[in-house]
Design a protein around this nucleic acid. Structure first.
Lengths: 237, 237
DNA sequence: ATTGATCTTGAATCCAAATTCAATAATAAT
DNA sequence: ATTATTATTGAATTTGGATTCAAGATCAAT
C-alpha cells in the first residue's frame, strides 16, 4: 500500500482504481484457472480494459501476483487476532483458533490460497516469504515448548521437527476441501468452526498424546470415542 | 512398459533405448529445475540428442512426464511390500512402514516427487490418478477403522476426515527436507529410518491419543518425554 | 479554454519455445 | 549388396503470448 501510493508521486486516484480493478480481476481469474493458466489477457479481459493497459501498471504478471499475495499476507497477519482471547495455558483453544484462521482463509480466498501454493512450488524467493509468515505462528509454539513441557528431553531441532510435522495436519485436506472441492469431503457438510475443531483435536492429540478437555468440544466430541481396546481384536480383511 | 513395447510393433530396440535416455534425462533435469522450468531443449541437451528427436518419441513434454510419473507410481505400488511383515494388530509398525516408504521415495526420487506435487497442483486429471494411488493406502486404514475402534461413534465420512487429516503429518516436512533441503531440518542429521519413526510416532499419537509401546521405539523414544504437567505452569513470553 | 499530465486503446512487434520436415545416417531383412 | 525401415539431425517455420508504442481520450489545474 505504502509503496503503491508513494513510488510515483504523480500517480492519480483514477490510476489507483485501475490497479485495484486489475488486482480484483486477477483474483477472480485465479479462482477459476489458477496461477499457471493465468494470462495477462485473461486479467485485462476480466477487468474490461485493453490488453496494453496492463503494462502501464505492472511490469509483468509475476509482479501483479506478488502484490496481491503480499497484500493478502500482510492483511492476514494484521487481522490475526488469534492469540488475544485465549488464556495462557489453554492450548486446545489456541490450536483451534489457529485452525479457525486457516479454515477461514481457505474458505474466503480459495483462489489466493491456491495461488500461494502454486507460487511456492516454483519460486524459492516467494516460498521463503511465505514460510516466514507461516512459520512465524509455528515458531510461537516452538518457543514456548520448553515451558509447556519442562520434562521434555527433545533438542531444539527435534522440537522443530515435531511442530513442523504436526503442522501438516489438515494442510492437504483444506486444499481438497476448499480449492478442489472434493465431493467426499464436502459431503460432511461441516461448518468452518466444526472443521477447525476436528483438525485442532487431531493436532492436540498428536502434541499431547491425549484428548483435549471434553467440555471444550462443541462439535467433535465423538472423537473421544476413538479409544483403542485394551487388547485389540485380531481382524481379517 | 507393456504399452511402450506393444503400441507400435515396428519399434526397435534402439528406439526403446532412446526413449529411456530421454526419460532419464528428463528426471535429471526435473531434479535440478522442476517441472515448470523444464524445456524440451533441456531434456534433449541432457540426453545428448538433437532437439527434433524429442517429437519422434513424444508428442509433447506433458506426455513424457506422464509416462515417467505413471511408471514411477506403478513401480512404487509394486515394490510396496509394507504390509507384509507387520503383524495384524501391530499398528505402530504399520504406520512406521508407511512412513519408511514415503521417506525412501522422497530420498531416492526428489525430482519426481517434486514433479508429482507440481503436476497435481494444476492438472486435475493427473491429480485424480495420484490421489487414487495415494489414498489407496489411506483407504486401508479407513476400512479397518470400525474393527480397530469398535466403540467409535464416527460416521464413515468422519473417519475419512480423521484419516486424511492425520495423513498430512509430514507431507510438507518431507518436501522441505528432501526437495528444498531446508538447512534447519537437515541439521537434524536424521537417517531415513529415524525420520520415518518420528513421523510415525506423531501420527500414532494423533490416531490413538497415546504413545506407541516404548519397546518399539528405536530412535524417537525421547518423544515419550513430551508429557504435559498435570497443572501446566503459567508462562509469560 | 488551454495546457500538460495521466490514462487507455489495440494493432504492430518481438520473443522464447514448440513443432515440422527434408535430408542423412544407421540398422535390419533378404 | 540392395532395399526398406527406423533413427537422427538441425535449420526453418509456427505458435502463443508478452511487450511496445503511437495515437487519442480524459482529467486537473490554472
Amino acid at each position: 500500500m505504502a509503496t503503491a501510493t508513494s513510488r510515483t508521486p504523480a500517480r492519480r486516484a483514477k490510476g489507483e482504481l485501475a490497479r485495484e480493478r486489475l488486482k480484483n480481476a486477477a483474483i477472480a481469474v485465479l479462482d477459476r484457472v489458477g496461477y499457471h493458466q493465468l494470462r495477462i489477457k485473461d486479467v485485462t479481459a476480466e477487468a474490461g480494459v485493453a490488453a496494453g493497459l496492463f503494462h502501464h501498471y505492472y511490469s509483468d504478471l509475476r509482479s501483479l501476483i506478488e502484490e496481491i499475495l503480499d497484500e493478502h499476507i500482510a492483511n492476514a497477519e494484521a487481522t490475526e487476532v488469534i492469540e488475544r482471547d485465549v488464556s495462557k495455558g489453554d492450548w486446545f483453544n489456541r490450536l483451534r483458533s489457529h485452525y479457525r484462521f486457516a479454515v477461514r482463509n481457505h474458505a474466503d480466498h480459495p483462489g489466493i490460497m491456491r495461488c500461494i501454493h502454486q507460487f511456492c512450488a516454483d519460486d524459492p524467493v516467494f516460498r521463503e516469504r511465505w514460510k516466514a509468515s507461516y512459520y512465524k505462528r509455528l515458531q510461537l509454539l516452538v518457543d514456548v515448548f520448553p515451558f509447556v513441557f519442562p520434562d521434555s528431553e527433545l533438542s531444539p531441532h527435534e522440537v522443530r521437527l515435531v511442530v513442523y510435522g504436526l503442522s501438516g495436519i489438515g494442510q492437504d485436506l483444506l486444499r481438497e476441501y476448499f480449492i478442489e472441492r472434493d465431493p467426499t469431503l464436502l459431503a460432511l457438510q461441516l461448518s468452518e468452526d466444526e472443521l477447525a475443531e476436528w483438525l485442532a483435536v487431531l493436532q492436540y492429540r498428536g502434541l499431547f498424546a491425549c484428548n483435549p478437555p471434553e467440555e471444550q468440544l462443541h462439535y467433535a466430541a465423538r472423537i473421544l470415542t476413538i479409544k483403542r481396546h485394551a487388547s485389540p481384536p485380531e481382524h481379517n480383511d
